[in-house]
Design a protein around this nucleic acid. Structure first.
Length: 835
RNA sequence: GCGAGAGUGGCGGAACUGGCAUACGCGCUGGACUUAGGAUCCAGUGAGGAAACUCGUGGGGGUUCAAAUCCCCCCUCUCGCACCA
């Protein structure tokens, strides 16, 4: 009967003891390592996909501890938000209670994985002692002119009955519930993130250790675009139409103007052009198209002639002004100069136009005008049909044309961004109240900092009202207040904040989580941030990371923190898939880790999860492959269990002189050195490659079994051999401990150690023994392997060449051929080139 | 369409600087022990071939003594963005 690792008996014991281990003394900063996991939304059901995130973080924290770092690994809860409210409405339970229950369940879950944090620093964003400071940040932003209220067309989800940020609308539908979103005009709060657009873009270069794809996504999201604003004078009106273009070099090809249907001038233009009646229909149609159709790939370019004309400022050409569905009011100026010859969209529009619009080619790829275009030519070339600029390279012409128009006051260089200001107000209950007061006399004024927090009332009918107002509007005791400025009767703002505001600064709070006098301790935060390693999912590549960067830059500008980027290193782990889809409750393909931990133990689940593939890549879950990890755990356990006597005290130093070991023992000694090198390299140098580190540890284990079974000296219990085995076991446990902590702690203790294995340092390899004394030299003839020869390390090149040429098999292959060249790669191969 | 990543045995994957392709694990085949095996251990396991050998990292070309790795062209998949003027 084989001995089995009794994980059920020992797991909880260690999980309780490790609390102490993870408690961080933040006054020690010299060797600090801030290891941060993205704090979760407490949805209550963690599956193995979430597990991967936390297991990676936990293993990393433990490796860093054993690397000698003072590790800060805190955890908290991003606990405001819609799901709590929805669940509460459905189950008739208060969102706070629902949230707290889930937090308790998830905390238990973390422990069961052996995933430990410094819980003395736990933060919960829905508690007043936390959101007080979220409100404080809001007030600071307001005072700095970076929070403002504006009537805006906002995305309205009819099912969630709330406003959504642009980021929460995907393909015209609500990201959360899938309902079709439409536009609604409401007064909303915004943060002026656009003011930071340039810095958010430029400083991406300060983050070389972020995944390239995250930086690209942020860059695209900010969408900086340099161009020129050109004025087209409207015929018979004292008005100009400002067009934003990045291709002013094509202006001589501009043969129409297209403006957005919701442009403020559109109605007036239709009136002037005498087409108001039919135009109205068109406007209505575009409005209906807007949110839904616009998102679809097959969006057609509908247009309507206003009856008005404008003058092309370059050549005075009279061009018709169209309303066009493909022009977006939100980008640029909402007016586009139509250059069908050199813009594919304009080209397609002209094809559909009921009246003729000229297609004038002004750039020629080869310097000669080509006869007719089947699609727009968007490349570079020489300018033609461009009067004084003919013959110029178009890129050079661009500067000249801009200068000429600018002289006449008809153009100016501008920069546009796709990034929009951050809409942060929500008409929902479960969020941090916006700390503003509406006073008839004083206007909209912030609550005094000393009066924060504005407490979210408990007894509220939090069912959404659907009238564009938050449920808080029904709570008289909440709404009615005194104006902080004049003291007169006033009303509180009843909106709550987007939860991304809560999560944009939580990593600062962990350093002083119970401080009731300020949001964070500047000196501690300056010592501990930027975060050394941030670990989380790719789904937060844009929003959370962008908002956190913005808030930190703001706090930096306020002189409250000394750094201006929050996260120095970012690691985004891959998602776990099952049956070809990413694991999610809605897909019904989630795997509950609890039964697996019950059956195989936490360490097996950890090993399998880390062994499944490179942590940054998506992986397919398979219960069956769990067996391999389970076998490995038990193989390590039996290594101890079958040699208890030999391994007593094996946590200490063994006196091994590798110089006097025979070849058999040297082989094991070398295997240990190689494993140390590989595991530490895989984790630290190569970026958390737990999968290959585990392979290396499996190989060492296999090597140890070979030694036990085959080494005669070991079978005799010869002290020279057992000492070597003890040393191998010690190193195996030290390297495996961060990955399979329960197993290694338990064996460590049973071997007689009174202190935790995590107080020990990771071993260092004896670099002189990473390679063996002899190696197999591969001999090729014309690049094909023809023989293998055992060779001594450090054999000179000439000698290797001689050895290879003297080999019988090789001589046979060379035969009558003429040797042209012999390539010798020492320690590896010889290639003989024969003709 | 643009951007990023990927394509290697039956499967997950390894191969770090161009130098032994398929480490490690799963699965499978055979064997040992056994009343039994969903335990454990041993052996085997890219394809073809009796063998010598030949072929083999999505496809095609190239560079090189040598290519999974570098270059060019193409195909497929995943993710992100998508009328951004």
């Amino acid at each position: 009967m084989a001995d089995v690792f009794p994980f059920q008996e020992i797991e909880t014991k260690w999980q309780a003891r490790w609390d102490e281990l993870f408690r961080c003394d933040t006054s020690r900063t010299a060797d600090k390592y801030y290891c941060l996991m993205m704090f979760p939304y407490p949805s209550g059901d963690l599956h193995v996909g979430h597990g991967r995130n936390y297991i990676i973080g936990d293993a990393l924290a433990r490796f860093k501890m054993m690397d000698g770092a003072n590790v800060l690994a805190p955890m908290g809860w991003d606990s405001f938000g819609l799901p709590a409210e929805n669940a509460a409405i459905k189950n008739e339970i208060h969102p706070r209670e629902w949230t707290e229950r889930n937090i308790a369940a998830m905390k238990r879950q973390f422990y069961r994985w052996g995933v430990i944090y410094d819980w003395s620093r736990e933060v919960t964003s829905c508690f007043p002692e936390y959101y007080r400071w979220t409100q404080w940040i809001f007030v600071r932003l307001f005072k700095a002119g970076l929070a403002y209220r504006e009537e805006a067309s906002v995305n309205w989800c009819p099912s969630c009955k709330t406003v959504l940020a642009n980021e929460q609308v995907a393909g015209g539908v609500c990201e959360r519930c899938g309902s079709t979103v439409y536009l609604k005009k409401l007064a909303q709060w915004f943060f002026r993130i656009r003011k930071y657009a340039d810095r958010l873009l430029d400083d991406l270069d300060k983050l070389p250790n972020w995944p390239e794809r995250v930086r690209v996504m942020q860059r695209n999201w900010i969408g900086r675009s340099e161009g020129v604003e050109v004025s087209f004078l409207l015929e018979g009106m004292d008005e100009r139409l400002e067009c934003f273009t990045t291709r002013v070099d094509t202006i001589y090809g501009a043969t129409f103007i297209a403006i957005a249907a919701d442009h403020p001038l559109s109605a007036e233009l239709l009136e002037r052009g005498g087409r108001a009646a039919e135009g109205k229909e068109f406007l209505q149609m575009v409005r209906e198209l807007q949110v839904q159709e616009r998102e679809k790939a097959e969006f057609t370019k509908e247009g309507f002639f206003t009856g008005c004309y404008a003058a092309n400022p370059a050549n005075g050409r009279r061009v018709p002004v169209y309303l066009a569905s493909y022009v977006l009011m939100e980008y640029g100026t909402g007016v586009v100069m139509g250059v069908p010859a050199h813009d594919q969209r304009d080209f397609e529009f002209v094809r559909r136009s009921p009246i003729d619009i000229d297609v004038v080619q002004v750039i020629s790829p080869d310097g000669a005008q080509s006869p007719g275009l089947s699609e727009a030519y968007t490349g570079d070339g020489r300018l033609i049909n461009s009067e004084a600029f003919d013959g110029l390279d178009n890129r050079i012409g661009m500067a000249h044309i801009t200068a000429r128009l600018a002289e006449k006051g008809l153009a100016r260089p501008v920069v546009h961004f796709r990034l929009k200001d951050w809409l942060i107000s929500r008409q929902r209950y479960w969020g941090a109240p916006i700390p503003m007061v509406h006073c008839r006399k004083c206007g909209v004024v912030p609550v005094k900092e000393e009066d924060l927090p504005v407490i979210l009332p408990e007894n509220v009918d939090f069912h959404p009202r659907g009238d564009g107002k938050s449920p808080l509007a029904t709570v008289a005791g909440f709404v009615e207040t005194a104006c902080p400025v004049c003291g007169g009767p006033a009303e509180r703002d009843t909106d709550t904040m987007d939860t991304f505001v809560d999560s944009s600064w939580y990593f600062l709070r962990y350093l002083s989580p119970r401080d009731s006098s300020r949001p964070f301790d500047s000196s501690l935060v300056n010592a501990w941030l930027p975060v050394d390693q941030y670990v989380g999912g790719i789904e937060h590549a844009i929003l959370h990371l962008m908002y956190s960067r913005f808030i930190v830059k703001f706090l930096h500008d306020e002189g409250l923190v000394s750094f201006d980027e929050p996260f120095r290193n970012l690691f985004t782990q891959g998602m776990i898939h099952r049956n070809g889809a990413k694991m999610s409750k809605s897909k019904g393909n989630v795997v509950n880790p609890v039964p697996l931990i019950d059956k195989y133990g936490a360490d097996t689940v950890r090993i399998y999860t880390l062994f499944i593939g490179p942590p940054e890549k998506d992986a397919e879950w398979s219960d069956r492959a769990m067996e391999g990890a389970y076998r490995f755990v038990n193989r390590v356990w039996r290594l101890y269990a079958n040699h208890r006597e030999i391994l007593q005290g094996a946590f200490g130093e063994e006196s091994i002189d590798p110089e006097i070991l025979d070849e058999d023992r040297l082989k094991l000694y070398r295997a240990v050195q190689v494993t140390i090198e590989r595991v530490t390299g895989d984790i630290f140098a190569r970026g958390f490659q737990f999968n290959t580190a585990i392979s290396a540890l499996m190989e060492l284990t296999n090597e140890m079994y070979l030694f036990i079974e085959q080494n005669e000296a070991f079978k005799r219990r010869d002290p020279g051999a057992t000492s070597l085995f003890r040393d191998a076991m010690k190193n195996l446990l030290l390297l495996l401990a961060p990955i399979a902590p329960h197993l290694c702690e338990e064996i460590w203790e049973r071997m007689g150690s009174g202190t935790t294995i995590f107080s020990r340092k990771l071993p260092k390899a004896n670099s002189r023994y990473l390679k063996s004394g002899t190696y197999t030299l591969v001999v090729q003839v014309n690049g094909k392997i023809r023989s293998r020869i055992e060779a001594e390390k450090d054999t000179p090149r000439e000698k290797l060449s001689e050895l290879a040429l003297a080999d019988d098999k090789i001589r046979k292959f060379i035969g009558e051929g003429k040797i042209i060249k012999v390539i010798v790669i020492p320690e590896s191969l010889v290639n003989i080139v024969v003709k």
